[in-house]
Design a protein around this nucleic acid. Structure first.
Lengths: 198, 198, 198, 198
DNA sequence: CATGAATGAGATTTCATTCAT
DNA sequence: GATGAATGAAATCTCATTCAT
């Protein structure tokens, strides 16, 4: 059978269409009709697969968050040098923003919901926990090997991720403010040299 | 004149009410009716003072951005020591987030509009230009006095501001993730020691 | 001012239009749009005066129930003879059904809701309490004067009202089944003679 | 044949499920989906056996009406005494309401349709014709035997049935209004003594 | 200036019905 | 026969905006 899971495929199709719509029309300026048109399906079928718009949006958030999370986990295990590993981690993170700019923004759009919808806040919070954990592992390895100073790895992870998010924001607000590639390298160097044993 | 622009006072009143509503009901979930009730005025009068909801929102953005900007400029000129000055700058910034958490969140809510409304993007971009400039001045003073390394001050400003925004985000997503006061001090120390001449 | 209470007048106008719609299209086959058109107003204004369709329907029920209740209280106090009084009470009741057939049916339409909406059931129940009380007073007077047997007046009231409702139902189902005027007289006589002291 | 009409059995199954749904969700608040789930069949198959929802509803009405009709015809022929016979007829009728309260309510729900759907009105009207006829036969027997007064039996049948329906209504609206068992006996006595030869 | 009744476009959602499999 | 995915009409409800008073 070439029809292993029509339902799942349809759901994916609708979620993808929704991401498109958010990108194009804005987080709260798209209608179910828009999603239907984009996905090439009828309005009704969306409510067949998703309880309501909220439910659909939670699926979108889930996808965005997990997609970003998945990219981050891409082969770092192959590397031995903690410094190289950290540099690559940072590079990959910055790359997500640059190469999926609209996608990262859709992710950002959910931030407006953290005060109104506990579930949204919770998903994002968990994403950051995982995010920090990934980074922490890299740092701990370096600390163990004596390459990195004995800082609190979780705290320094927060700091690293904060720098990446913060720089990305400034770039999204104004991509002529600085040369992204150049400043990414600069920031990476500041972050890395900040933790290197003297 | 003892009649200092009643119109302006009315506009302020409405804008303040709107900030309240965004905080309470969410950026996309409040109505002009809500604003009217909160401000204690009629629905009609809002459209007398503001062209439409968009116009009102731009005024809100203007207020939020300038309020935050104003806090930052508070007495740093009195200090002589560049290190102390930088530390205070960072502290003040973090304080804005902590002490006006909801307010900062309203500011953040506008970030989701940068793709849809060029004017919003532009206002935020200008805010960050000013923000960086303030920081840059502090850094330049330190570089001049030989206390700070000869890094590109604008780039390091971006980095500083990025750290502040990024840490604040993580805290807004989950205020149990770390002790804000403690990590603020830690991050401040990392930022400062990263630029000190060895 | 000839505009003492625009709001109340509008509400009445909408409620009246709703009764019309229920009569014409059926209890669950009319839309807010229909009501708007019938009342000659816009769809939106209905939701300005009524929270939602349910709220509107409760107002309709209130009106129907109280209108019917009001008719029943029409001058019986003038009469002295308990028998005459009872006969007139019964006549008035039957008259309500005959002369406001559609109206009585709208009232009936709410009966489908008694299992789903406690408030509906409660309003109807209270209406019947009042209904029985009115009848009971007539009976008690007759018992006191020794004209009526010493039956339980509330129970006999229930029986009287039951006969009226039940006969009306059969007539509504098939108005060719019997001559309404004739059978009303017959039933009245059975009811009255059933309580007369021998 | 040992395959006694699978189709009929399926139809019954669906009709029964519909009665359940009306009871549970209300006459106007259940969907074909609900029926399908309750019957344990697919949504599609319902439209295979029934033309549409209206058609299904007519089948439900048919079932409800004939079920109630059937109960009424149960063993009265064995009795000789017309008084006893009449008492039992009344008792059985009241029993239908008490013992199948929800069922009787479903029957009542159709009453609201008599204005909109001639077919519904007609079925109900025919049901009452049969109902009255059954009662009339009991009365005629008593008149013939000189036990009952020479009233018009059809008219008195209407009156009897009206009392039963009317009392049941009041009870359905508020089952705390009176003790059903007690008042049933009382009403029975009033009805019977109203027709006894003096 | 100020009010709030009124409008109407448009959003979400439900659901009877169809039809390919 | 049987399924359930798919459709699309229609319903309720919200809300920015207008305008007579």
């Amino acid at each position: 059978m070439t029809k292993p899971d029509v339902a799942q495929e349809r759901k994916n199709q609708i979620v993808r269409a929704t991401v498109d719509c958010i990108s194009r029309y804005g987080y709260h300026n798209f209608s179910m009709q828009d999603v239907a048109k984009t996905a090439g399906v009828s309005k009704g079928i969306i409510h067949y697969y998703f309880l309501n718009k909220d439910d659909l949006m939670m699926s979108v958030l889930g996808k965005v968050v997990s997609d970003i999370g998945n990219v981050m986990h891409s082969d770092m295990s192959a590397l031995d040098d903690p410094i190289k590993k950290l540099e690559i981690f940072i590079e990959v993170c910055f790359d997500i923003v640059r190469s999926t700019r609209e996608y990262y923004q859709v992710n950002m759009d959910f931030w407006t919901q953290i005060n109104q919808k506990e579930e949204v806040r919770s998903v994002i919070a968990k994403h950051y926990v995982k995010f920090r954990k990934t980074c922490t592992q890299v740092l701990e390895e370096g600390v163990e090997k004596g390459v990195f100073q004995n800082v609190n790895p979780t705290e320094y992870s927060s700091f690293i991720i904060a720098s990446i998010d913060g720089m990305s924001l400034q770039w999204l607000f104004d991509d002529s403010a600085f040369d992204y590639d150049k400043i990414v390298k600069q920031v990476t160097s500041w972050i890395v040299s900040g933790i290197l044993t003297k």
